[in-house]
């Protein structure tokens, strides 16, 4: 794999994470328990779709095959997507949606902090912009996990169940991917050695306050980064891509 191909892969990973999570979060629009939460979810989805446009736009530019962010979004099939399996998980209840958001936000904030120091100017610029938005996402998802975890008996039980259910999807964030070695050597990607420990420290602090217990079994699902997805992604893409699949190239 050439350096350019590796960079294309990695940028799709970043862009697909935010694209697919944005779509999932947007499914809440008009359905959240209170209007403030509905607005917050819609705003989060909006930030994420903006970030996806930037990452996938850069990915298409690096690929140099005449595609753009829209072409990557609407005309790839599930095996071409490089997002974490975590972000394609169905929403479940409100608590589970916010638990998934928190697990992802805590990772994304650290990842962007590293990428903002990339020697690749465009990557550093996008990360530097996105990190400010993600700081607000993380503050809110962390606060909500604490509020619901340390809430009523019912909310606590639901948050613990959400954590138990989603935990096996977190390990994939930290799988060392040999395909990216060339990028690390070229200082395009920073070293990720301390990412897992720093993430674990952040989530442990929040879960302590939330009176939630991290599962002891560290089994981790993987496959998303190389295009082996769960059935859920296919269903999501059906909905997201239907218009461009039916009317290819249709413009607003």
């Amino acid at each position: 794999m050439t350096q350019r191909e590796a960079l294309f892969e990695f940028l799709q990973h970043l862009g697909d994470n935010t694209l697919i999570l944005s779509h999932r979060v947007s499914e809440w629009c008009g359905h959240a328990p209170v209007i403030e939460e509905d607005i917050a979810l819609a705003n989060t989805a909006l930030d994420l779709i903006g970030q996806a446009q930037m990452w996938l736009g850069l990915a298409a530019e690096i690929e140099g095959a005449g595609r753009d962010a829209d072409a990557l979004t609407y005309h790839r099939d599930s095996w071409d997507f490089r997002n974490l399996l975590l972000v394609e998980r169905p929403n479940g209840d409100f608590g589970k949606t916010l638990m998934r958001q928190f697990l992802f936000d805590a990772w994304q904030a650290l990842m962007l902090e590293k990428l903002a120091r990339s020697e690749h100017k465009q990557i550093a610029a996008i990360a530097g912009k996105a990190i400010k938005e993600v700081a607000y996402h993380l503050e809110r998802s962390g606060d909500t996990v604490i509020g619901l975890g340390d809430g009523t008996e019912e909310s606590h039980a639901r948050m613990q169940a959400a954590l138990d259910d989603l935990w096996p999807y977190c390990g994939e964030m930290f799988n060392l991917d040999e395909r990216y070695n060339a990028l690390i050597l070229a200082n395009i990607l920073p070293r990720m050695d301390d990412l897992r420990a720093r993430w674990l420290s952040k989530v442990t602090d929040i879960f302590d306050d939330a009176t939630l217990v991290i599962p002891t079994d560290n089994f981790a699902h993987s496959g998303g980064k190389s295009g082996r997805h769960t059935e859920h992604l296919g269903h999501l893409l059906c909905e997201m891509q239907v218009l461009q699949r039916s009317y290819p190239g249709a413009k607003w």
Partner: peptide
């Protein structure tokens, strides 16, 4: 009230004296 408001750049706040809700142009 909430760090997220009617546009991406605003948060929702409330005055505890005049009781009016208001938008806050949040820092980034």
């Amino acid at each position: 009230i909430s760090q997220f408001g009617s546009t991406p750049c605003k948060a929702l706040w409330r005055c505890c004296d005049c009781c009016e809700p208001f938008d806050y142009f949040k820092c980034i």
